[in-house]
Amino acid sequence: MSFDLQLAGARALVTGGTKGIGASVVEALQEAGARVVATARTVPGPASAGVHYAAADLTSAEGCAVAARATLDALGGIDIVVNTLGGSSAPPGGFAALSDAEWARELDLNLMPAVRIDRALLPAMIAQGSGVVIHVTSIQHVLPLPESTTAYAAAKAALATYSKSLSKEVAPKGIRVVQVSPGWVETDAAVALAERLAADAGTDYEGGKRIIMNALGGIPLGRPARPREVADLIAFLASPKAGAITGAEYVIDGGTVPTA
């Protein structure tokens, strides 16, 4: 079996592509031969070969329009869209701590960028009769943490439902839509959280990781996923090797979510 993903020359957009999972997706696609536009609010230094950075705030409709135009200008078209953008700044305290403004922020970060970017770029995919859209959701859409992630989890659940509906609409037009739902991933932000929890509890980093894993009900694999592991799954799903896969959700969580 060949491990060539047949992505040489493919044109891809990765939102949130300078940190965490997004940065690893950019790297994986670029290594596979794709030409990639990566978005972020602020872009890093010079890009590597085959990567173009576009500065845009995707929490606004205007920012999404800027990113879509920059993508088409840089690549001359689009074959793959990977929406990795997401996160949460909501305060702890359960439902009572979530104001209308907090709810709006979570939706504007975790749902609407995907909706707006898809709306802007899908017409080009439909015109050529092919394309792949991958939405990075989260296991929290089925396993929320009420103390701190209710709004984030609800926004990701909305993204999951939107993804399924979109897949049914555009599959007959040659477009595949797939969800990837990570559990806890050991990004720089996750490391910082574990270190903060460890300091608060008077333990080390491994102890901080254990606190997070316990909050999730345990990770049977015994560790979080690594960003590149998630990225490699996404690269495969974006490739012709996964040409019959659409409308599906791929969970990568080390066994965190229990199944019947």
Rank of each mutant, 00 (worst) to 15 (best):
D4N: 15
G9W: 11
T18K: 15
V25P: 10
A28C: 00
Q30D: 00
R35S: 15
R41K: 12
A47T: 03
A47K: 10
A49C: 00
A54C: 14
S60Y: 06
S60N: 11
E62N: 14
A65F: 04
A67R: 04
T71N: 01
L75G: 08
G76P: 09
S88R: 07
G93N: 11
G93I: 08
L109T: 07
M112H: 10
M112A: 05
D118W: 06
A120G: 03
L121D: 02
A124Y: 13
M125L: 06
A127V: 09
G129T: 05
I134F: 03
T137D: 04
T149R: 14
A154Y: 05
A155P: 01
S163L: 06
K168Q: 10
A171Y: 11
P172G: 11
K173R: 15
V177E: 07
V180L: 07
E186D: 15
T187Q: 11
A189P: 03
A189R: 12
A194P: 05
E206M: 09
K209W: 09
M213W: 14
N214R: 14
G222C: 00
P224N: 08
V230I: 15
A235P: 08
F236C: 10
K241H: 05
A242S: 09
G254Q: 06
V257P: 06
P258G: 03
